[in-house]
């Protein structure tokens, strides 16, 4: 009976679902269009030259990692209150993708800093904050992996997700006071007018949208995989702890 329910929920040939597949296709198309715009349409920066094109991927990834960590916070909070696995799946998927994005934002930043600032790394507030953020969410994934059981790992990760998110503004202010070469924001409410050429702004916004679709695709895919992981764990448990052939 219960195993019927298990098999009913997965479609063996297409475990990811129709929406996710279409989103994946859209993500691919938008990414290719984005690359076309970044390399063939966008002008080279007057001061920074060709390498400035990193901007179009560096900033969207940094922005979306914040969105990911916000989702971790929401998922963790609701999970601790309702204890339904759905919210833990969201928090888990968002943590993992957030860590991937923040890692890439840090690495592309490091690669960009070398030719522009002459150093790979500087202890500038935003870089330092981002590094601390990376450490917090890596710890969040570690505590889940090292917990004595899946259910406990979910609770511990949720606690770290909430505490870590609450800590972010304080980290930002303290690091800001502690040190202050990162360019001032060129988009968003703090931007100075005219800091970014209109064509550059338009391509940046397109890039942000493309990355948002990629982000959503990865998130839905990761949630689906996590659901399968839960089912596989349930199946393994049901078969009396016997390791099934495909078990990792």
């Amino acid at each position: 009976m219960s195993s019927d329910a298990v098999t009913a929920r997965i479609s063996p040939a297409k475990p990811l679902g129709q929406t996710t597949r279409w989103l994946g296709l859209l993500a691919l198309v938008l990414t290719l269009a984005d690359l076309y715009l970044i390399f063939l349409v966008a002008p080279a920066d007057a001061v920074l030259g060709q390498v400035q094109r990193i901007f179009y991927i560096h900033v969207p990834m940094a922005v979306l990692s914040f969105l990911a960590f916000f989702l971790v916070f929401v998922g963790s909070l609701v999970f601790l209150m309702r204890r339904t696995p759905r919210w833990d799946r969201l928090a888990h998927a968002a943590t993992e993708i957030g860590v991937v994005l923040v890692t890439l934002a840090l690495l592309t930043g490091i690669i960009w800093a070398r030719p522009v600032w002459g150093v790979w790394w500087t202890w500038e507030p935003r870089l330092t904050t981002t590094l601390i953020l990376w450490l917090i969410y890596v710890a969040c994934l570690m505590v889940r992996a090292y917990a004595p059981s899946r259910s406990r790992g979910a609770v511990y990760a949720a606690v770290v997700g909430i505490i870590g998110f609450a800590d972010v503004p304080i980290v930002y202010y303290s690091v800001q006071w502690w040190r202050s070469i990162h360019p001032a924001p060129v988009v968003g409410p703090l931007a100075e007018a005219g800091a970014l050429e209109p064509i550059m702004l338009a391509i940046f916004l397109f890039s942000l949208a493309a990355f948002l679709v990629v982000f959503l695709y990865l998130l839905l895919q990761r949630i689906a995989v996590r659901r399968l992981e839960d089912q596989a764990a349930g199946v393994r448990l049901a078969s009396g702890g016997q390791a099934s052939p495909g078990a990792p």
């Binding site: 601390i132 450490l135 917090i136 710890a139 570690m142 505590v143 090292y146 917990a147 004595p148 406990r152 511990y156 606690v159 770290v160 505490i163 870590g164 800590d167 304080i170 980290v171 202010y173 303290s174 690091v175 502690w178």
Partner: peptide
């Protein structure tokens, strides 16, 4: 309380604790 429950608890506490406590330490 979390770290003592996990495997490799000696390393888990500093890994969890230091990034979050950092603003206090800088202060």
């Amino acid at each position: 309380a979390i770290a003592v429950q996990t495997r490799s608890r000696e390393i888990m506490l500093p890994v969890l604790f230091f990034p979050i406590i950092l603003p206090l330490l800088i202060g």
